[in-house]
Amino acid sequence: MAEIGIVIPAAGQGKRMGAGFNKQFLLLRGQPILVHTVRLFEESSYVSEIVIVGAESDLLVIKELVYHHKFLKVVAIIQGGAQRQDSVRTGVQALSSTIQRVVVHDGARPLLTLQAFHRFLEETEEFSAAIMGIQLKDTIKRVDLSGKVLETPPREGLRAVQTPQIFDRGILEEAHHQAEKVGYYGTDDAALLEWMGYPVQMVEGSQENIKVTTPDDLWLAERILAMREA
């Protein structure tokens, strides 16, 4: 398996959390959310390098966390851009030239397990671009700006997208470069490759691999970790 580098965008301020500071510094089972996220990749034998991309005001705190927890695979902690896409592009550039497979994973998604991550790597080894996602439980409606229902797409063809997302470095960098040239912004990195016409493979994720965005998410994450420990 090729050397894998991890880019963790962690610059979001998390306004929906209402904490008044970066939600990734909130404690989850006594440790910052970001620490849970980084530790997973630090412990993976497949991961060679980790780059964390944060807001300028958070860089010192992130550096202190990395030093305190002895995360030796973190090779760079850098300032993010105006948008998440800008942050990921900068993060990829900070990886060593030997890294040819790049995984992008949300800093606020701390419940990915080592087993699930390694299974993801094995299932996506033959694909140039692959993402994790889960089937939807609820019926989805597409509506217009006034709230009028336009259609009900069948759930069978819909997935809620998660991270990690994995890419061959060359096509990821090309997609970011082309998007930057024309000012195109996608909802995630996979959207850039779709925009460029590259195939992206979806593999099954986990209902527990939640992104901590609101106080309810933090409560749920606490319960999930408590059950795992039990």
Rank of each mutant, 00 (worst) to 15 (best):
L121T: 12
T113G: 10
K23I: 09
V161Q: 08
Y185F: 13
A2Q: 08
R142H: 15
G197T: 10
F21L: 12
P32A: 07
T213E: 08
D188S: 15
S128C: 11
A10T: 09
Q178N: 14
I78V: 11
R155H: 11
E43F: 08
L158R: 06
D216K: 12
R89G: 01
T98M: 12
L111A: 06
S96D: 13
V88Q: 03
A94D: 00
L60I: 06
Q178S: 13
V88T: 08
E126L: 11
F120K: 05
S128H: 02
F127I: 04
M202E: 14
K141V: 14
S87F: 01
S146D: 14
G80M: 02
Q100P: 05
G12A: 03
L95K: 09
H68G: 07
R159F: 12
V7R: 02
Q135V: 10
S44M: 07
E64L: 10
L121F: 11
D188N: 15
T37W: 04
Y67W: 14
S87E: 05
G20L: 04
P32R: 01
H118Y: 08
T124S: 00
S96E: 09
G30A: 13
R16P: 09
T113R: 10
A179S: 12
R119S: 15
M1Y: 11
E194G: 14
T152D: 03
G197I: 11
T213F: 03
H176K: 02
T90C: 11
Y184K: 14
S96V: 01
G183M: 06
M132R: 05
P154A: 12
A179W: 04
E229T: 13
S45C: 13
Q83M: 15
D168P: 03
K70R: 15
E49L: 02
G107Y: 11
L40V: 12
E151V: 10
R84L: 13
E64P: 05
L27G: 07
I134V: 15
S45E: 15
V200N: 03
T124M: 02
F25M: 05
P153N: 09
T187W: 13
V102M: 00
L172E: 03
D168V: 14
E222F: 02
V203P: 03
K137W: 10
